[in-house]
Design a protein around this nucleic acid. Structure first.
Length: 360
DNA sequence: AACTCGGGGCC
DNA sequence: GGCCCAGAGTT
């Protein structure tokens, strides 16, 4: 595309966007804090999933100072079920930094904003373009797919090493006079028209500019490398009952499900009996001696890089004093209190059965 | 440059 | 059961 075509392209795209954009909650505000929250939640997560979380989160933490003041526990509870919990931890940390080092005001300078934890290349571009009209191209999964078709870019979209080809194309098309609107228009096009599976080319406002469409080859783009098959692990988990209370432990703040609460347990060895593994894991993690009373539930769950089959056992406390090895905290709680803590989805899957059976 | 990090909705 | 989503941090 030459410069004149690029100008027409932007005009078509933005005209279409003004008429067809979805009425999303974060499009009703100019508050950089709110836009920031939305972009972090939308990372690797669909719009429909985010909407209720976004609204609840802003009720709990209506502005940046309220987020900075709150406990990480409360933030994780608001984030519970959304996944990628480092996003919540980084957001909470970033809010503290904005208070301490930026007088409580979200920095407009992309270089400063981009230094905050959890703010990478994409979120820096998205937030500063939408909230502050900074001319940076926001290149997410949607935009890469649109660009791959538009310019017939044959490099795989799911390899970070090829990210540069897409940002170069995006830089060239960006409307520097209204970068926020342009960026959202590209993403909206990817979400509503230029979808992954069956793009709706007949309704596409920019199909006359699309190289892949012209050659009848939209289905050949984007190119994507196949991902490895994921391993499956067997997990044994114990609900330890004592005096009408159950034992929960908190994971360390780093790594998988960092900061969340869970029922103690762990991997079952290659030829290990699941009940024995349950008893062993509880001994190793919290130093308690327990016996298995009954099998409570079997849960299947998929993570990004592996999947698990988890057997859950009701256990009876026999002896010992809690000494943590792995977990960083623990509580003996009544089942009625369980909703106060943030748990991973895999734990939630057996909660209904646990409530039914109780803990005695 | 490769690996880690959730969950859900759709096919 | 696999795909893919408004990606970032770590190593």
């Amino acid at each position: 595309m030459n410069q004149q075509q690029i100008r027409k392209f932007r005009k078509r795209l933005i005209g279409w966007y003004r008429e067809n954009r979805r009425d999303l909650p974060w499009r009703k505000t100019n508050d950089p804090y709110c836009i920031w929250i939305s972009e972090v939640m939308l990372q690797q997560t669909r719009v429909e999933t985010v909407v209720p979380y976004y609204q609840r989160f802003l009720q709990c933490f209506p502005d940046l100072p309220s987020l900075a003041r709150s406990d990480l526990e409360a933030v994780l509870k608001a984030w519970e079920g959304l996944g990628y919990y480092a996003r919540a931890r980084n957001l909470h940390r970033a809010a503290g930094i904005v208070i301490a080092e930026h007088q409580g005001v979200v920095p407009q300078d992309p270089d400063l904003f981009g230094k905050l934890p959890g703010v990478g290349v994409y979120i820096r571009a998205a937030v500063t373009s939408i909230a502050f009209d900074k001319p940076l191209p926001a290149v997410d999964g949607n935009v890469k797919r649109v660009l791959a078709r538009l310019m017939k870019i044959g490099e795989p979209v799911n390899r970070s090493s090829f990210h540069r080809s897409f940002t170069a194309a995006a830089q060239q098309l960006l409307d520097r006079r209204q970068p926020g609107t342009y960026n959202q228009a590209m993403m909206e096009l990817g979400a509503l028209i230029c979808m992954p599976g069956q793009p709706d080319c007949p309704r596409c406002p920019v199909r006359s500019f699309c190289s892949a469409f012209k050659e009848n080859g939209v289905d050949r783009y984007p190119v994507r490398l196949r991902s490895e098959p994921v391993p499956e692990y067997r997990i044994a988990v114990g609900v330890v009952c004592r005096n009408n209370r159950v034992l929960i432990t908190r994971r360390k703040n780093e790594g998988l499900l960092g900061g969340l609460w869970e029922f103690p347990g762990g991997k079952i060895g290659p030829r290990e009996d699941p009940e024995a593994a349950c008893i062993r894991e509880i001994k190793e993690e919290v130093n308690l001696h327990v016996e298995v009373m009954a099998h409570l539930s079997r849960v299947k769950h998929a993570y990004t890089h592996f999947k698990i089959v988890m057997d859950v056992y009701r256990c009876r406390y026999l002896g010992g004093r809690v000494k943590l090895s792995g977990p960083v905290d623990y509580r003996w709680i009544r089942l009625e209190e369980i909703d106060r803590f943030a748990f991973p989805k895999a734990n939630h899957k057996f909660f209904p059965m646990l409530r039914k059976v109780g803990c005695r």
